[in-house]
Amino acid sequence: MTTDATDVTDVTDKENDPAVLARQPVGSVTDAAHREVIAYIRGRLGELGLTQPQYWVIRFLHPEDLSADGSGRTPAELAELLAPYLLPQDRPAEDAEDLVGRGLLTRDAAGRLWLAEPGRQAHARVKEILPGLRAHIHDGIDDADYASAVRVLRRMMRNVGGPTALERYPL
């Protein structure tokens, strides 16, 4: 069960004051939220023996996820697909090599990477925990408040980047 964000008892009055909140720089707030959420997600994936970029590699090779047909892909193709999601420190080619070395992926004679059965199993383990991760991240936030926050952020994106900003980050 979630509660109204203003009912949260572990924040100060200042953190619930609309006037204070309205003066916060959007870049600072969104950067802090991004860092905290990504650290949380990456920590939970790490408990399963995966980095977030490794999970994305698996997703882009899985026929029931981001691969339309389960076809293999080259490391360069994967790097291009992953580029919008990566942080500066991420190394998708090294992550893919690690997955090959651990038997989660295989490589054919043409250098294309394919999802192996252990990779499918890793994908399934992550899919099992995702609802709990989302529930934890969204705890105390109802869907209407979350939708409002997304709507506001997307409007800011359009304000500063024009309509093409929303095309770069489709829903």
Rank of each mutant, 00 (worst) to 15 (best):
M1I: 04
T2K: 03
T2D: 12
T6K: 10
T9N: 13
D10Y: 09
T12C: 11
T12K: 05
E15M: 12
D17W: 14
P18Y: 08
A19Q: 10
L21S: 15
R23F: 08
R23T: 14
R23I: 09
P25G: 12
G27F: 13
V29N: 11
V29Y: 09
V29H: 08
D31Q: 12
A32F: 03
A32E: 06
V37R: 03
A39W: 04
A39H: 00
Y40W: 06
I41F: 02
G46M: 02
E47G: 14
L50K: 02
L50S: 04
T51F: 09
Q52C: 05
Q54N: 02
Q54T: 00
V57G: 02
I58N: 00
F60H: 14
L61F: 02
P63I: 02
D65A: 12
D65P: 04
L66K: 13
S67K: 05
S67M: 05
A68F: 05
G70A: 12
S71W: 08
R73M: 07
R73G: 01
T74I: 06
A76Q: 11
A76K: 07
E77P: 07
L78S: 00
L78A: 01
E80G: 12
L82Q: 01
P84Q: 10
Y85F: 15
Y85V: 11
P88N: 03
R91K: 06
R91M: 02
A96T: 00
D98P: 01
R102F: 12
G103K: 11
R107W: 02
L113K: 04
W114T: 09
W114C: 07
L115C: 08
L115W: 06
E117W: 08
P118M: 11
G119I: 00
G119Q: 07
G119V: 01
R120M: 07
Q121C: 14
A122P: 01
V126C: 13
V126Y: 09
K127T: 10
K127G: 12
L130K: 10
L133G: 00
R134I: 00
R134A: 06
H136A: 14
I137G: 03
D142W: 04
D143M: 05
Y146V: 02
Y146M: 08
S148K: 13
S148T: 10
A149W: 09
V150P: 05
V150M: 11
R151Q: 14
V152C: 11
R154C: 04
R155G: 13
R158Y: 11
V160Y: 09
G161L: 07
A165I: 06
E167M: 06
P170E: 03
